[in-house]
Design a protein around this nucleic acid. Structure first.
Lengths: 208, 208
DNA sequence: TTTACCTTTGACCAGTTGGTTAAATTATTT
DNA sequence: AAATAATTTAACCAACTGGTCAAAGGTAAA
């Protein structure tokens, strides 16, 4: 618990977030959440009627912590290079602070894409814009200004950016083993310089 | 079943692979594997004593299908650009044929890094080399030949390559939604041109 | 104090799950 | 053919899991 004077509902949500993001929907036991929140198991059902409902609340919390901030950057009025820099900076901050969140989101969406759909739709209508399209306009503008190569594709660039931000943190257990002799400190060091590395990697790739 | 004349043990392993890779360790039910293999549940325990043992066999199978082929390319005697091209080509082939495998591997390693460790160690000693180090040598050679930028870092390049190969397939349910209006055919089209896009993206980024 | 309402708890339940076991069936050896 | 071993099955079990419920505790209004 980060706060002592937190109400029960908040304590439950925080504990549920810890357990769900680490063990996933099917791997999570209601009893473990109750223990971590320091309450009786029945209280979970008093505040959130079922495991599914509690999971949905957690999923939405994690999702809305991840998407809106960064997608707002993508939607802002800004030159492309600056936008890329800001995006990488903000995104890596969030990811590093919540290293188990991306793999949680991806995995649960993979296992249950339909069940998650309604949550997603809500999250997006709340934001009220379509970030990928806006990013495509920026790319075209930069092309006309002669700043980037003519064969740059906005969608591929967008996906590449997300990939090299998220994947190194999400796949840490794998990458740390095959590239860093499973040395945790070496990998921390590797991640700490990622911001500039990623930024340079992307901009070098697209600039004319 | 791809083959009719397959022995029971093989049928079990194939069915287990399907279910485990899609639903993960904790989400998988032994009964479902038995049903899919067309046999009695007790037979699972006859051939593989426990769920853990069966899972271990599946995990090793998937892992050794993914790592060795591509890591051999990384270890081969080849100019850097050609090596990158071959790697991307081979890696994307495997990933696209087994789209649920990467997220399965990453997720299970994340949930149980220690339990998986022994399987990993076996897989690596079987291969008998350290691909990341070899790749670093290639990068240094290309630098001396003036082919690539001096500030290229081998480990970051290596991780970036894996990221933009795996992530777009692994995170498909997420990316398809936020960038493609959840249109499956559009995303298939997007993935079909990835080989050349990825290759160009990487080489443009590092070439002098 | 009494009443009414909200919160918390322990005991309990029905369905599920991984796993066992003894018997039946099939294949192999003698 | 008989015997021995390997494979397959149905019935069963103990532990676990999400969820319920009636009762107890606590709090504020009457």
């Amino acid at each position: 618990m980060t706060e002592l004077n937190k109400d029960t509902e908040g304590k439950i949500l925080e504990a549920a977030q810890d357990v769900f993001t680490e063990k996933g929907m099917s791997g999570t036991r209601m009893q473990e959440i109750a223990d971590k929140a320091g309450i009786n198991k029945s209280l979970l059902h008093y505040y959130y009627r079922s495991k599914e409902k509690l999971f949905g609340a957690v999923f939405k919390t994690v999702l809305t912590r991840f998407l809106p901030k960064t997608l707002k950057i993508l939607n802002a009025e800004m030159p492309l290079f600056e936008k890329i820099e800001k995006f990488v900076d903000a995104y890596l901050d969030i990811i590093m602070k919540n290293p188990s969140a991306p793999i949680f989101l991806i995995n649960e969406m993979h296992k249950n894409p339909n069940g998650i759909a309604s949550i997603m739709i809500n999250a997006f209508t709340d934001m009220g814009f379509h970030p990928a399209e806006r990013f495509a306009v920026d790319v075209e503008t930069a092309k006309k200004q002669g700043l980037i190569r003519d064969d740059v594709n906005a969608k591929h660039l967008f996906v590449n950016m997300m990939s090299i931000c998220i994947f190194p943190v999400a796949a840490r257990p794998l990458l740390q083993r095959i590239g860093f002799d499973n040395n945790s400190k070496d990998y921390d060091l590797f991640l700490s310089v990622r911001k500039t590395e990623v930024r340079n990697f992307i901009i070098n790739s697209i600039k004319k």
